[in-house]
Design a binder for these strands. Structure first.
Length: 443
RNA sequence: UCCUCAGUAGCUCAAUGGCAGAGCAUCCGGCUGUUAACCGGAGGGUUGUAGGUUCGAGUCCUACCUGAGGAGCCA
C-alpha cells in the first residue's frame, strides 16, 4: 500500500526528521487510549514510540496494531517527527505495519517490564537480553573489548591466541574441566599465560584475548566457570613496567566507555563521577603496607578478622583495602608462598614475589593479576619440583629459559569483572551473553 | 565442601495452625497524548518432593531436591 520508504535504524532515525522511513524490529510495548494507539518499537539499536490515531491510519493497520502482542516481529513504515514528549526526542507517525510473526496471546513473551527473580531471568536469558538494560550492558562489554584490543594493537603488541585444549595444568589440575582428546585426557585452558610467554620470546610484546575455564566451586557474584581474559606479556619487562601498563590500560578502558557509550551508561544508571577520575597514576601499596592497613582496620572494628602477615587476602580483605581508595589500587610483592610457582622472587627480599594484584574500587575485587616471571632455568625447575608439578609437562616451558631466557612480565584481566565494575553491576553473570556458573549451563 | 536464606497462579509476592489472595501478564469492555498509562470485568492453583505431628498443615517437625547470598579458592 505504500511506496518503498528507505530502511533505517532507530539509532539513526534523528537524521530523517520529517521523512517517511521503514524500521524493522519488534513490538516492545504498547499503550492504548481508545482511538489512539502508542506502539513502542525496538530494533536492537534503540526504542521509539509510534503514534497511530484511528482516523489517520487505515482500519487494517489500526486493527493490526490493536491486536499486536509484545515482542512480535514487525516492519513499520512511518513519518519521523521530533517531539519533546518522546524520551528519545523523536516519534514515528505510523503509516503501515507488517507483522512477520505474531506472538500468541496464550503463550505471551515471559519477560514483563516489572520485577523478576534472578533464577527466572537466567532461565530466560535468551529473551532477557532483549531488554534495554541488558542490551546496554552488552554494548558496553563490546566497547571494553574493542578498547582493550585497540590499546594493545596501538602499542605494538601482536595478538597471539593460545590453545584452549591443553595437555596439563598451568597451576594444578583440581580446578580444570577435563575433556576427552581422542585416547588422551586433556583440559580446557585456565590461562593462556605459559603459552604467551613463549610468544613473547618470539615476538617481543604480545597479548591474547580468549575464553578460560575454571571448575572452581565458587558461588559468588564475582565468579563464572567460563570467562574471558585479556593477557599481555612482554619480553624484558619488569614488575614496574607492567604496573604502569596496567594503570594506563584500565584508565583507557574506562575513558573509552565514557566517551563512546554515554547513552548506555545512562540507561544502566551508572554514577559517572566514580568513573571520570579513573586516570593514572593509581595508588600503589606493598603487601606489607596492605597488611598494616588491614590490622589497623581490625583495631578500628572495620575488619572482622585480624589479618596476619604471610597469608593471601580473602574477599572481605580485598574489599576493605579497595574501599580506602577511589581508584583501583595496585597491591604488589605478596609472599612467594601464596603465589604461583612461576613468579620471580624479589632480589631484595626473596620471600616476596614480584607480583601485583589490581583491586577495583567499590568492592569489585581483583580485576588484574600479574607478575614478573622467573627468568632462570634452574630456579624455575626447582620451583616446579617444589610444587609437585610434573617436570616432563613443563619441558617446553623450561626451554624458554634455556634458549635465551630474559626477564619478562605480564598480567591477566578478567573481562567480566572489569565490565561489572565499570557498569556498577551486582553480579558478573549480567556481563556476558550466556553466563556459565556453578549451577547453570542452560540456555 | 561449609554456613545462612528461600521455594504458593505465567511472573513478583501475601495469607495467627482454621474458606488460598493481591499486583503485573493474558483475554473482554471503556478512554484521542499515553510514558512501568488508567478504569471496569473474566479466566488462571496437586502451595518444590516424600514422610510425620494434629480434629485440621501453605504455616510445625524430618529428609531430600532446586535456587539465591556468603566463605574458602580465584580473574
Amino acid at each position: 500500500m505504500t511506496e518503498q520508504a528507505p530502511i533505517t535504524t532507530i539509532a539513526e532515525i534523528g537524521k530523517h526528521d520529517g521523512e517517511t522511513v521503514t524500521i524493522r524490529g519488534w513490538l516492545y510495548n504498547k499503550r492504548e487510549s481508545g482511538k489512539l494507539i502508542f506502539p513502542i518499537f525496538r530494533d536492537g539499536t534503540g526504542v521509539i514510540q509510534g503514534v497511530a490515531p484511528k482516523n489517520q491510519v487505515t482500519p487494517e493497520v489500526f486493527e493490526t496494531l490493536h491486536t499486536l502482542t509484545d515482542e512480535s516481529s514487525v516492519i513499520v513504515t512511518g513519518k519521523v517527527r521530533a517531539d519533546q514528549r518522546a524520551p528519545g526526542g523523536f516519534e514515528l507517525d505510523v503509516i503501515d505495519a507488517k507483522v512477520l510473526q505474531r506472538v500468541p496471546e496464550d503463550d505471551p513473551f515471559p519477560i514483563a517490564r516489572k520485577e523478576h527473580g534472578i533464577d527466572f531471568l537466567m532461565e530466560n536469558r535468551h529473551l532477557w537480553v532483549r531488554t534495554p538494560r541488558q542490551a546496554a550492558i552488552l554494548r558496553i562489554r563490546a566497547e571494553i573489548i574493542r578498547a582493550a584490543r585497540g590499546f594493545f594493537d596501538d602499542r605494538g603488541f601482536t595478538l597471539t591466541d593460545p590453545p584452549i585444549l591443553t595437555p596439563a595444568a598451568c597451576e594444578g589440575t583440581s580446578t580444570l574441566f577435563p575433556v576427552k582428546y581422542f585416547d588422551e585426557d586433556a583440559f580446557l585452558t585456565q590461562s593462556g599465560q605459559l603459552y604467551i610467554e613463549a610468544m613473547a620470546m618470539a615476538l617481543g610484546k604480545v597479548y591474547s584475548f580468549g575464553p578460560t575455564f575454571r571448575a572452581e566451586k565458587s558461588k559468588t557474584r564475582r565468579h563464572l566457570t567460563e570467562f574471558w581474559m585479556v593477557e599481555p606479556e612482554i619480553a624484558y619487562a619488569e614488575l614496574n613496567d607492567i604496573m604502569e601498563l596496567a594503570e594506563n590500560f584500565i584508565s583507557h578502558l574506562v575513558q573509552s566507555v565514557i566517551a563512546h557509550r554515554p547513552d548506555d551508561l545512562k540507561i544502566i544508571g551508572r554514577d559517572l563521577t566514580k568513573l571520570e577520575n579513573i586516570k593514572p597514576p593509581f595508588p600503589r601499596l606493598s603487601y606489607d603496607d596492605a597488611v598494616k592497613m588491614l590490622q589497623e582496620g581490625h583495631a578500628k572494628g572495620a575488619v572482622e578478622n585480624r589479618f596476619e602477615w604471610g597469608g593471601d587476602f580473602g574477599s572481605p580483605d580485598e574489599t576493605y583495602i579497595s574501599s580506602q581508595f577511589d581508584k583501583p589500587v595496585m597491591v604488589h610483592r605478596y609472599p612467594t608462598k601464596v603465589k604461583a610457582f612461576y613468579m620471580e622472587p624479589d632480589p631484595q627480599r626473596p620471600e616476596l614475589a614480584l607480583c601485583v594484584d589490581v583491586l577495583a574500587p567499590e568492592g569489585y575485587g581483583e580485576i588484574i593479576g600479574g607478575s614478573q616471571r622467573i627468568g632462570d632455568y634452574e630456579q624455575l625447575r626447582k620451583r616446579i619440583l617444589e610444587h609437585d608439578l610434573p617436570e616432563a609437562s613443563f619441558k617446553w616451558y623450561l626451554d624458554l629459559r634455556k634458549y635465551g631466557g630474559v626477564p619478562h612480565s605480564g598480567f591477566g584481566m578478567g573481562i567480566e569483572r572489569a565490565v561489572a565494575w565499570i557498569c556498577g553491576l551486582e553480579h558478573v553473570r549480567e556481563t556476558i551473553p550466556f553466563a556459565r556458573t556453578l549451577t547453570r549451563i542452560y540456555p
